[in-house]
């Protein structure tokens, strides 16, 4: 078909070049090549051709290939961008998250408390937004008042905390400490201090129970 040589020899040549020839056929092929100069010529030309093709110098993609390819891609989703940022900057994310949560918690507890509120104790009376300890009465226990004032006409046995309000001096008696908090930052500080003290007393309590 392609040349004068027997087709079987050509097939064996192909098998040999594909690396798929049996040892017995390989010997047969070698004998054929020795006996037939046409077969030998084809074989030599084929191996030469392969060598030429393989010697074709390896070309490289242009230096800006990656950049150009990436620029041509459809845009990625924003969600992934955020995820990657988080993976690359874990500490920053942790810090930002901390600040966010802390301020959110405190600001919300501050703004939630824009309403008048106070600790309920027996005998306390409310006049408008003023909490009153009536004359001749004794209130036992701590009182916290938010967005309201305190007037003590009778007797109070306990500490007083007033947020955004004031203690109005009067004839009454307070057996405890009075703390007035008027500003956002003081309120924040108060909350932090309180949380810290709670934590300390919690751990302190634990220690005690272990000691016992």
């Amino acid at each position: 078909m392609m040349n004068a040589c027997p087709e079987k020899v050509i097939r064996m040549m192909d098998d040999y070049l594909d690396g798929e020839i049996s040892p017995s056929e390989e010997k047969e092929l070698k004998d054929s090549l020795q006996n037939c100069s046409d077969c030998r010529k084809i074989y030599q030309e084929l191996t030469k051709t392969i060598a030429y093709v393989q010697s074709a110098s390896h070309v490289q993609a242009p230096p800006d290939f990656v950049q150009k390819t990436m620029a041509g891609l459809p845009k990625e989703s924003q969600r992934v961008g955020v995820k990657r940022f988080m993976r690359h900057h874990p500490l920053m994310i942790a810090a930002a998250l901390f600040v966010l949560l802390m301020s959110a918690a405190m600001m919300s507890s501050f703004s939630d408390d824009q309403q008048f509120a106070f600790t309920k104790q027996e005998n306390l009376v409310v006049e408008g937004e003023t909490v009153v300890v009536p004359a001749g009465q004794t209130v036992v226990g701590d009182i916290t008042i938010r967005n309201g004032d305190l007037r003590v006409d009778g007797e109070l046995e306990g500490d007083v905390t007033i947020v955004n309000g004031q203690y109005m001096a009067s004839s009454g008696v307070i057996n405890g400490e009075i703390e007035e908090i008027d500003q956002v930052f003081e309120w924040l500080w108060y909350t932090i201090k309180g949380t810290f003290q709670d934590a300390v007393s919690f751990f302190g309590g634990n220690d005690q129970s272990i000691d016992e």
Binding site: V59, V66, M70, L73, S77, R79, K83, R84
Partner: peptide, 17 residues
């Protein structure tokens, strides 16, 4: 597959030539 293009850039880098 999650849409991360940077990971794909590394693949392009690897197979470009």
């Amino acid at each position: 597959m999650k849409g991360d293009q940077d990971a794909f850039a590394e693949i392009v880098e690897l197979y470009q030539h």
